[in-house]
Design a protein around this nucleic acid. Structure first.
Lengths: 236, 236
DNA sequence: CGCCAGGTTGAATGATGTCAAGAGGAGTGG
DNA sequence: CCACTCCTCTTGACATCATTCAACCTGGCG
């Protein structure tokens, strides 16, 4: 079992894919496929449910499935030369994991759910086959590759630049469409730290400071703030 | 003209592409195309020569060409929220610039030659057309997209992690196939700093330290070192 | 109730940023 | 050929920020 002992059962199969009810069908990799072919696809695509901290796949292992995120957040991490693990980027609903299998055979990251997460598990061979016959899928693949590039570059520009306060502000803005983060998109301090390239303590301290300055509140697992406040800090 | 005044003529057309003599043909985007179609392609592909610091294209402008690097190094940078400019990654011979035009119409970075650089300028419409007819090109596109992702993630894992000395050691190792950097791949301190996410002064100080410790020499525009020394520092 | 994972805080230390001054080299024009 | 300027790199002194190591708090859960 490739999961840290402390985190129990890694995955639970919920059932076969039901694309019609998919919350992110339009965004997902297979979204553009015609409804006629959808039926055949559903047969070999499973929906899996992962608990927080469960591992979806491991760096440098042979892989045979892509994953499409339906809900939740997934972190993609690598072991750095220095022994720590570094989060390279986050995958949100609609994003595709494991696209590197289109040009290789091993996963390049460890993928781990940040919180309860649902994914569609898609056989790589299926995608390779459909790629030959469907121009729509080819376009979708290209779009999703580009989205991967964008996410990685976003990480560099937003989360590897500026001081800790700026980075945290940018992360909160990124996670929150409005003036509060969704409680279901909770990220704990340790993961924030690995994502922003600072220590856990610095994250904790900085968030505490921001609370004391009155620009941030934390209710349960949700942050509340005025976007303007954080945007001012983010750009400095 | 989109080039800083101080850096004179931005580009010089060397001539039409001569793929047979291309130093990186196997690696390049168009490499896998059959020789028969190569002739037709060469007609609309130009080879351009850029001087050090010349701008190849600018962030957020409409684009109609991809570029394939033949020799030299190109930096891809973006303006950060904080006003500085941050280098997102380097493009080396064989790499392709402007792949974002396959799914959009604007360049997402500013591309600037780090030193004297030769590129092939390929019309985006040509690539879009060939993509329909040639499975080989489609595969090449996918490989080059993946290579872009790899480069961005390399940047995060290697150049945004650890202290200044580790980052510099990793950069030198990355630039040097052997135990010395190629004088023709010179990168000045300012660019190193923007690439590693530290200040110019920190780069200068750290390199001076490493020289004093005897693990680094600088002859003209080349660094000399023993890989073992730097590898020990890089992994810490 | 007691344990433990997650979070907070303090004090000391180390690393990096900032501002400022100056050295050396390459190119230019007189 | 020299004096000049500009660019790049170096170095110092100091302020600021982040890390480290440690202690402690808290709420959930067996």
């Amino acid at each position: 079992m490739t999961v840290k002992a402390r985190h129990g059962i890694p995955a639970m199969k919920v059932g076969s894919a039901d694309c019609r009810s998919c919350p992110v069908r339009k965004l997902g990799l297979m979204g553009p496929l015609a409804t006629s072919s959808t039926e055949a696809i559903q047969a070999c695509v499973d929906v899996l449910h992962f608990r927080a901290h469960a591992r979806i796949y491991s760096e440098d292992t042979a892989g045979s499935h892509l994953y499409s995120v339906r809900s939740g957040i997934v972190k993609l991490e690598q072991d750095t030369p220095s022994g720590r693990t570094r989060i390279l980027r986050l995958a949100m609903p609609g994003d595709t994991l494991g696209l590197e299998l289109m040009t290789g055979f091993r996963y390049k990251h460890t993928a781990q759910a940040l919180r309860a997460t649902e994914v569609c598990r898609i056989p790589a061979v299926l995608v390779r086959e459909l790629r030959e016959s469907s121009a729509a899928l080819r376009e979708s693949l290209q779009i999703h590759m580009q989205r991967t590039v964008d996410a990685a570059e976003f990480q560099i520009a937003q989360f590897c630049t500026g001081n800790a306060q700026s980075r945290i502000a940018r992360l909160l803005l990124h996670l929150a469409p409005e003036d509060r983060t969704d409680g279901r998109r909770w990220i704990m301090r340790e993961d924030m730290a690995a994502l922003l390239g600072v220590t856990l303590e610095t994250v904790s301290r900085t968030i505490s400071d921001m609370k004391r300055q009155g620009m941030l509140e934390e209710c349960g697992h949700a942050f509340k703030f005025r976007r303007g406040d954080l945007e001012r800090i983010a750009g400095s």
